[in-house]
């Protein structure tokens, strides 16, 4: 199949960017979207140009590295799919595809389609953990966890930290990402001692990073490759209010 690509090109974070047009020729239907870009990049290099910079690593939908918006859809619009697992059989010969980087003020463009997502790391650093020293744990079975909670925690823990939720959010909010971690640890007994402090710290860090607010449109949930439910944001809202109230009373 042959396609027309309109790709955001930007030399570095300081330079202005623009859309440039490329032809993707003889693309096999069974190729993944990124393999299609690999082919285009080889062509660009042979023609003496600089390849389109885009990030990818595991190419099996788990590392969360790949990140691009195709025709306005983060990860390309296939439900529960990262762009590395999006295959060309979902497109038609002759399609015109506009490919852009994640857009959010907290994700500055590094180059072309590559953005800096370190803000997400800093949110985790502000409290997305259980403070347990190596070697100090009790036996794994000494801490029974109801299967239901464990499964629900796993639903949240699946987050791959790709940032698609932020990219799709009209407000550049990272609430789905944040709520997944708060939900995961908040559902488990291990997460209880730091539960309130955690949610307060993480929300404050989220705001400080310049991520926006949730206006309950749930675009995040629709593009999340791990289909993390927006009801984790519900839980986050609740947890945050409870923690704030406790903090006000000096109980945290």
């Amino acid at each position: 199949m042959n396609l027309t690509l309109k790709v955001w090109r930007q030399k570095d974070s300081k330079s202005p960017g623009r859309i440039e047009t490329y032809a993707a020729k003889n693309i096999p239907e069974s190729a993944s979207f990124l393999e299609m870009l690999d082919i285009v990049n080889e062509d660009i290099m042979h023609a003496g140009g600089e390849p389109i910079m885009f990030e990818s690593d595991c190419r099996e939908g788990i590392c969360g590295t790949c990140s691009m918006v195709i025709n306005g859809y983060a990860h390309g619009g296939q439900r529960g799919t990262t762009v590395c697992q999006l295959h060309m059989r979902h497109f038609k010969d002759g399609d015109e595809l506009t490919i852009e980087p994640w857009r959010a003020a907290a994700f500055p463009v590094v180059r072309d389609l590559v953005v800096n997502r370190s803000g997400l790391d800093r949110i985790i650093q502000s409290g997305g953990y259980v403070s347990v020293r190596t070697g100090s744990a009790v036996d794994g079975n000494a801490l029974p966890v109801p299967k239901k909670n464990s499964d629900l925690a796993m639903d949240a823990a699946q987050c791959i930290g790709c940032g698609a939720c932020v990219a799709a959010c009209k407000n550049g909010s990272a609430m789905l990402f944040l709520s997944a971690k708060v939900g995961h640890l908040g559902l488990l007994p291990q997460g209880q001692p730091e539960r309130h402090r955690r949610v307060l710290n993480m929300v404050r860090q989220h705001d400080q990073e310049g991520f926006g607010n949730c206006t309950n449109q749930y675009e995040c949930e629709a593009v999340c490759p791990k289909e993390i439910s927006s009801t984790f944001i519900t839980r986050l809202n609740r947890d945050y209010a409870v923690a704030s109230a406790r903090e006000l009373l000096g109980a945290v």
């Binding site: 309109k6 955001w8 859309i19 918006v69 025709n71 306005g72 859809y73 619009g77 506009t98 852009e100 857009r103 959010a104 003020a105 907290a106 799709a168 959010c169 009209k170 407000n171 550049g172 909010s173 310049g210 991520f211 926006g212 607010n213 206006t215 449109q217 749930y218 675009e219 949930e221 629709a222 593009v223």
Partner: peptide, 18 residues
Amino acid sequence: MNRVAKGERYVKEATVQA
């Protein structure tokens, strides 16, 4: 705040379920 947080808009915008 949200307008600032979003920054540059997409050249091609799309909406899934909002």
